[in-house]
Structure formats: C-alpha cells, structure tokens
C-alpha cells in the first residue's frame, strides 16, 4: 500500500479522533494549570491544582478504592467468565436462551442497571435481597452506610454488568481451540482440570489478556454504578476517581474545573502506567512485521 493511500484512508478517522479527543484533552491539560469556571477565561496558577489534588486525602482514597475495585472485579470476572463460558460452550439447544439471559445485564445501561440493583438491597423499595437474607439469617445488613457491605454491593454490581462481555470474549476464544489438541490431551489421559490448565488456557492466553485489558480499562472508569449504589460515597471513602472528578468539577456548587482537570491528568498518567505492557507488545509486533 502506498503512503498516500494510507493517509487518505486513515484521515477521516484520525481527524475525528484528534479533533474530538485531542482538542478537548488539550483543554483539560490547560485547565489543570488554571483557576477557571465554564465559559470564562481562566487565570494561570501553576501547579497549585496538582498540589491541591496530591495533598487532598480524598484523592488518595479514591485512587486506592478504584484500583482495589479494579483488581477484585477483574479477577472475579475472568474466573467466573471462564467457568460460565465453559459451561455455556457445552450447551446444546438451550444455548441461545441461556446466552440471551446472560447478556441482559450487559445491554442495560449501567446507571439503569445499578438502579434496579439498588432496589434489591433497599428495603424502602421492596428490598428482595434484604427480605430473603433476613429470612435466612434473621440479620439486617446496612448496605448503603457500612463500608464493606457497601463495597460488596458496588463490586457485585460492577461484576454483574461486566461479566457478560468477558464471558462472551472467552466463549469466542474457546470456540477457536482446536478439537485435535483437545482429543490428543484426552488420549494422553489428562483429567478435566489438567486439560483446562495445560491445554485450553494456554491456547486462549491472548483472549484472556485482552479480556483483562478491557475489563481493567472499564472498571477504572467506574462512575454510573456508584450514583444509585453509593449515596454515602464521600463519607465512606467509596468514591471512584471518576465520581470524585464529577463531584469536584460538575456537582458540588463550586465547580472547581481546574482541580477536576488536574485529577483527570493524574489519572491519565496512572492509566498510561497500567497500559504500558500492552503498548510494549504492540510496538514489538510492529518491529517484527
């Protein structure tokens, strides 16, 4: 392919991405050095916003919470996703039905799904989960005001909304595992677990890596889910980085756009560090080609 053709073919997409992403991104970086509010020119304040963000314990808490949530959710979704994908892959005629039901939580908008989810745990809205738990254990759990129960329902909800996509990717990967390899392993007398561990998982390593990448990126961005599920997010320390930015830059009266932008920039740095392995592997691929 000639260079001119390459440029012509990629230009529209590159223009869209650069125009709509880089320009706003530049504005965010600019704001992060300013004291500014919407629709007005800002005044340059140097690193003041960054200092404010880094010395504010709320930011540290948000980072710890978000990274912890990402770790837990990613591990759980990958494991559960693998298990469910294996089971679904073995289904016959029931498969479309089961797959359809499992996809429901993926196609519901996160914020709407989280609302439905919160109703299960809020006795003011019926609280079926509370009701059933109460029947079983006789106890009452403070899902919205106690630290760990609140973290539990947040994690459950994020898993609930992420699981189908991860499961779908793994399922797609499983279908690519060749029958011959599997049968060879069976003849060698490998047990079920051994077959999964030594044959299937290594052959879908790429898929699993991609699932981890996507799930990491998406959980790091958790925001919608917290609106109904964490009314006490600030007080409890269950505020994600994104919710923190929203609260600072859009909601809490002050609309401190400078601080919000500084937090955004810091978050981008964190994300770049996390993405480094993937970036390196793309570069390596490019070098080999």
């Amino acid at each position: 392919m000639r260079r001119r053709e390459f440029v012509a073919l990629t230009l529209p997409s590159v223009l869209v991405m650069f125009g709509f992403m880089l320009v706003p991104l530049y504005r965010t970086v600019e704001w992060s050095f300013e004291r500014v509010s919407y629709g007005q020119a800002g005044t340059f304040v140097g690193l003041q916003n960054y200092l404010a963000a880094l010395t504010e314990p709320r930011f540290g808490r948000a980072v710890v919470f978000t990274v912890g949530l990402t770790l837990v959710v990613t591990v759980v979704t990958i494991c559960l996703g693998y298990l469910i994908a294996t089971l679904v892959n073995g289904l016959g005629r029931m498969r479309p039905l089961v797959l359809g039901i499992l996809l429901v939580s993926y196609v519901i908008p996160h914020v709407v799904g989280a609302v439905s989810f919160s109703w299960l745990f809020d006795s003011n809205f019926g609280g079926v989960a509370n009701f059933l738990l109460g029947r079983l254990t006789g106890g009452d759990v403070l899902w919205f005001t106690d630290l760990w129960p609140n973290r539990l329902i947040i994690a459950l909800n994020v898993i609930w909304s992420m699981l189908p996509f991860v499961m779908l990717m793994i399922l797609a990967g499983l279908q690519g595992v060749s029958r011959e390899t599997l049968e060879a392993a069976q003849i060698d007398g490998a047990g079920t677990l051994g077959r999964h561990w030594h044959v299937i998982i290594p052959s879908i390593r790429g898929v699993l890596g991609f699932a981890v990448l996507i799930s990491t990126m998406d959980v790091l961005r958790t925001f919608d889910n917290l609106i109904p599920l964490a009314p006490q997010a600030v007080g409890l320390g269950n505020e994600s980085i994104m919710l923190y930015i929203y609260n600072v830059a859009f909601r809490e009266g002050a609309e401190d756009l400078g601080l919000g932008s500084a937090i955004s920039v810091l978050t981008i740095l964190i994300i770049l560090v996390l993405l480094y392995p993937s970036i390196r592997s793309i570069l390596k691929e490019a070098k080999e080609a």
């Binding site: 003011n124 919205f144 005001t145 009314p231």
Partner: peptide
C-alpha cells in the same frame, strides 16, 4: 433506621407508606 443518612424526603415517604 440505621441508614437514615441516605434518606431524602421521598425515602421518608416510603418509610411512612410502608
């Protein structure tokens, strides 16, 4: 209710309704 710090007025109404 121990979760009273999550109650806006509509939730107080729910408490009374229920």
């Amino acid at each position: 209710d121990p979760q009273v710090t999550t109650f806006d007025q509509p939730k107080v109404q729910q408490q009374l309704f229920n």
